[in-house]
Amino acid sequence: MKKLSARRRHPLAALVVLLFALAVTGGLYAAFSPSEAKADDSSAQSLAIEEGKKLYAVGCASCHGTGGQGSSDGPSLVGVGSAAVDFQVGTGRMPAQQPGAQMPKKKKVYTDAEIEQLSAYIASLGAGPSTPTKSQYDIEGADVAKGGELFRTNCAQCHNFAGKGGALTNGKYAPALDDVSPKHLYEAMQTGPQNMPSFPDTTLPEKNKQDIIAYLDTVNSDKSKTPGGLELGGLGPVSEGLFAWVFGMGALIVLTIWVAARTAKAKKS
């Protein structure tokens, strides 16, 4: 206890207390916040559509129009399918917070059940790709090497060879694919969110999509192997050059100073 009181006035003490308080608040919120309402499996599809329509009217209609017909602020949602809704809302891109070159990924606003209801409603407006089932994006038995080739032909040009993302015109960008779930990867390929082109099953069959997801799982997940050491962002020569200058030249210049410095003289008197 004595130790604690002695450290109470440490310059970092306030920071520690603050972090602790934040953690506790977050934990309490997580514990007491309303848990996800589990949709009843047997409930009628029409009920979901009805619920989805209500959610839509509150959260989406201001930009996409009351019937999903679109407006100057948002594109039409007729025929985009439930997969598009599941991706956009499931990754938090929708509802949009502010207009910009592109809607960024953020924490999702709706619960999974609500997303299902919204999807059902949008799907009812016109036929489109539907939310994939688990077997569709299952990577069991997928060909990783084939996935790599397909990735380099179809995806790497925007998302970089290791899925680290890249720039597009006028502030738009292809996001990094680091922690995108297989389902969302599948949906993105299928629906082509925002400026990304779509890769429908007619040109990139389901099997190929699984190969691509499997490839990303191998080279771009937290269990990916980087035999050589730090990945340095996986961005190629720019980050390597920066690293060589800062750490390589930095360490070497420190050493030159040590080698050339005068040795301490014996104190006189």
Binding site: R152, T153, A162, P227
Partner: peptide, 19 residues
């Protein structure tokens, strides 16, 4: 630190590219 991880970059094909 890794440098030039050619195994993720992939072999050259004139119709492929990475950003």
């Amino acid at each position: 630190a890794t440098i030039n991880p050619i195994w993720t970059i992939g072999p050259y094909r004139p119709d492929q590219v990475s950003t």
